[in-house]
Computed example of a mutant assay.
Amino acid sequence: MKSNIFSYPYKISQQMRNELNGHKSLLIWFTGLSGSGKSTLADALEQKLYELGVRTMVLDGDNVRGSLNKGLSFSADDRSENIRRVTEMSRILLDSGVVVLANFVSPYKKDREYVEKTIKPNIFVEIYMKTSIEICKQRDQKGLYMKAEKGTIKNLTGVNAPYEVPENPAVIITEKDSLEQAVEKVYLEIKDKLELQIE
């Protein structure tokens, strides 16, 4: 079956799209426990990038699981499949010339390494939301931690499923960082990588 698949040699390349947009493509990957602040930070960072004229797209765990990855469970295998599909979607978006902000718990080191390896030569920037589980529980608007502790939810990362801490993230954000400080930390990390052409 695979032998019958042929890629058409389209003339417009990612490099051309990057030049048209005036910046490079990046994948900014936010990882951390549920309630660690991934979506809040991605939202604030996207607003800053928008103001600078950077074309972006956010991929969020809950939104993707309600559409592209609907039907996947939270088992280890399905978590990996979730990340695999998100990685392929990110590749397509990167090829379109945009900056992708991906917010996923992504608890397993092997899955995050898979993302980085797969999207090369594009740039992968890993942001670790180092927020204590106590703070995450306090922020838990969905009541996930309470349900997990009661046994209603299985495989909740940090309660009855593991989280493997990133070994060498590009940026570490803690609960001591204000939102403004967190945005600035990430922006300083990606600023030169963007090669943003500001007129």
Rank of each mutant, 00 (worst) to 15 (best):
L52N: 09
G53D: 12
F30A: 09
K48G: 04
S34R: 00
L45S: 04
T40W: 04
A44E: 09
L33V: 03
T31N: 08
R55V: 11
E46V: 14
T40H: 05
L41A: 00
L41E: 00
V54M: 05
G35A: 03
M57L: 13
V54Y: 02
V58K: 15
G53T: 07
S34E: 01
L59K: 06
A44R: 06
R55P: 05
L59V: 13
L52D: 05
T40C: 05
E51R: 15
K38L: 00
L52P: 02
E46F: 11
R55E: 13
Y50V: 11
T31H: 04
L59M: 10
K38C: 00
G37W: 02
A42V: 06
L45T: 07
L33E: 01
E51M: 12
A42C: 12
L59D: 03
T56Y: 05
Y50K: 14
G32V: 08
L41I: 08
G53K: 09
R55M: 12
A44N: 09
E46H: 07
V58D: 10
A42F: 05
T40A: 12
D43M: 13
T31W: 01
F30M: 12
S39C: 02
E46S: 14
S36I: 11
T40N: 06
E46N: 14
M57T: 13
K48I: 07
A42R: 04
A42I: 11
T40V: 12
L41H: 00
L59W: 06
L33N: 02
L45A: 08
M57P: 06
M57V: 14
S36Y: 05
G53Y: 10
E46L: 10
T56G: 03
A42D: 09
K38V: 00
G32D: 08
F30Q: 10
K38M: 00
G35E: 06
L59I: 13
G35S: 05
D43L: 15
Y50C: 11
G53Q: 14
L41V: 04
T31Y: 07
G32W: 06
G37R: 02
A44G: 10
A44Y: 03
L59N: 08
L33A: 03
G53R: 08
Y50T: 14
L33S: 01
G32Q: 06
D43V: 13
A44F: 07
K48P: 04
A42N: 04
Y50R: 14
Q47M: 15
Y50G: 10
G32F: 05
V54F: 03
R55I: 11
G37D: 03
G53E: 12
G53A: 12
D43N: 15
S36M: 10
Q47F: 13
A42M: 10
L45Q: 09
G32E: 04
S39P: 01
Y50E: 13
E46A: 10
K38Y: 01
M57Y: 15
G32T: 03
G53C: 11
Q47N: 15
A42S: 15
S36T: 11
L33Q: 01
T56E: 06
S36N: 07
